[in-house]
Each structure stands twice: as structure tokens, then as C-alpha cells.
Design a protein around this nucleic acid. Structure first.
Lengths: 127, 127
DNA sequence: CCTTTTTTGATATTGATTATCGTTATCATT
DNA sequence: AATGATAACGATAATCAATATCAAAAAAGG
């Protein structure tokens, strides 16, 4: 099994090197200088492929734009309603709420998403 | 005090009478027979107004369509990845995690969203 | 090299949601 | 009942992130 295309790897690298949980546009702008013939379609295409394969998670949609995270270790997120920042929140491991949800629904939980919305430290001070 | 328009109330009633967490289109289709001159714009407009005022929550986006919930009592949701169903999950009032998130971020949590994704009972059986 | 399979760039299109704008309904007050 | 101020409306155009399309370029695998 060999490596994949250079651009696909560059997209993954771009995701991994930052903690801002970028948008597709952000990734495109970040890589365009180094890959002048990169197309936005390629960014969307590969982000979707990564999400489908589980290598990347889509954290949520903030201001109509999807935000991505290459850190697949289970963790929650905080979204600032003022500036749109998305921040990692590592909570102590599993309280068994998955099992509770499965009991309540009768189905199988595959993924759990915990999201906090509010004001981040910076935006709180500027009020 | 001012009263609400008939259509606005019908939209709220439509939301309240079902547990499916409808889309805007669903509400429109549900009311159109009784309100033949109802416009889809009115549904979107009022749903947005309800969300802005806090009377209705937008649970999430499933298959690109926003899903609404008129039950403002805090609770989690389960989304079936197969059929798109959105189901209420009432977890025990467990609110240590807001404080944990605030500690981690240094900001103020205003809202907490817990979402489970997986397969519902029906879709699980049909596999 | 050569062939097959992937991936890509460019661009058109989709589709949910929002904005616009001229009209209509509502309601308290004449 | 008529008025006027304002809220709400219908119709439809605009927006914009995301997807589909397809011929061309790059990678894989001999």
C-alpha cells in the first residue's frame, strides 16, 4: 500500500498542524501559495473523503461553514458564539452516557458529540 | 398585549404536536393544506424568529436540513445515521461538565448540546 | 515505457436558507 | 366604520457552501 497524492497529504498536514478547526476555505487559502494550481474542489473532495474514512471529524457548522478536526481522540468542543472560535475540551473519560442513550433509544450509538456554546475568554473580557 | 399571527401560531403548534423534530419543509407541507396561501418563506422566517427568541431549538442539521425542536427542556438527541430520525434522549441532570468546560476554556458556557449518532432500533433490526 | 486506476482543475449546478420589496393583515385609537 | 402605524406576509431573486461533471494529468503496477 502506497502513499496517496501530494495534495491530499498536504490537506491532511494542514489540518494536523493547527488547532483552530479550519474550514475548507481556510485549508485552501493556507495551501494555495505552496500549491498554486490547487483547486477548492480538491479540498472539499478530500475533506469529505477523510470524514467518510474516519480520519477526520467534522466538528460542526459554525456560521454556515463546516469545521474540521484531524484529532480523532474523543473530545468535546466549545464554540464561541461571538467570534466563532472552536476550541477543544477534553473531558474526563466516559460517564456511561452512551449506554444510557442506547437504553433510551434501543439502538446502537456509534459516536457521541458534546458541544458547548458560549463566550470564549477573549470575547468575555471585551464585553 | 399583542397577539401572534395565525400562521405563526400554526407553525409553533405544528412543531409542538410532533416528536420527529421536523424540517422547515416538513412544517410547510404539514400546514399547506390548512393554509393554502402559506409561503415557505414565512415558515423559515418564523422558525428563525423562534430560535432567536429561544422558544425553539435547532437540534442539528441532518442530511443538510435543519431540524427543530419546540421542547426547550434541556435534553440530548440521538440521530440515526441510516434513516435520519432524530429522537429525544433525556439524561439524568448531570451538570459537572459545563463547569469543566468553562475551566478548560476560561469562558462562559451558555448552552450545552449532546448528540449521539448511530443506528436506531428499527434500522438496527433491518441489517 | 505502457496500461490502468486515481486524482485533479475548472466550472456548472445544486439546494437550503436569506434578503428584498411591494402588499396585506392586525389592532389600538379615533 | 375609518385611520394609521407597524408587523407579517407571498413571491421570488440572491446567496453561498458544497457537490457533480468530465476531460486532462498524475500515480500505481507492472
Amino acid at each position: 500500500m502506497q502513499k496517496y497524492s501530494r495534495k491530499r497529504e498536504a490537506i491532511m498536514d494542514a489540518l494536523r498542524e493547527v488547532k483552530v478547526h479550519p474550514t475548507a476555505e481556510w485549508v485552501y487559502a493556507r495551501l494555495k501559495p505552496d500549491y498554486p494550481d490547487l483547486s477548492l474542489a480538491t479540498v472539499y473532495r478530500n475533506l469529505k473523503a477523510f470524514v467518510d474514512s474516519g480520519e477526520v471529524n467534522m466538528v460542526g457548522v459554525v456560521e454556515d461553514k463546516a469545521r474540521y478536526d484531524a484529532d480523532t481522540y474523543p473530545h468535546a468542543h466549545f464554540i464561541c458564539e461571538h467570534c466563532g472560535a472552536v476550541v477543544d475540551v477534553y473531558l474526563p473519560q466516559d460517564n456511561g452516557i452512551n449506554a444510557m442513550a442506547e437504553d433510551a433509544v434501543g439502538g446502537k450509538v456509534q459516536r457521541q458529540e458534546i458541544l458547548f456554546r458560549g463566550l470564549c475568554e477573549n470575547c468575555l473580557e471585551r464585553e
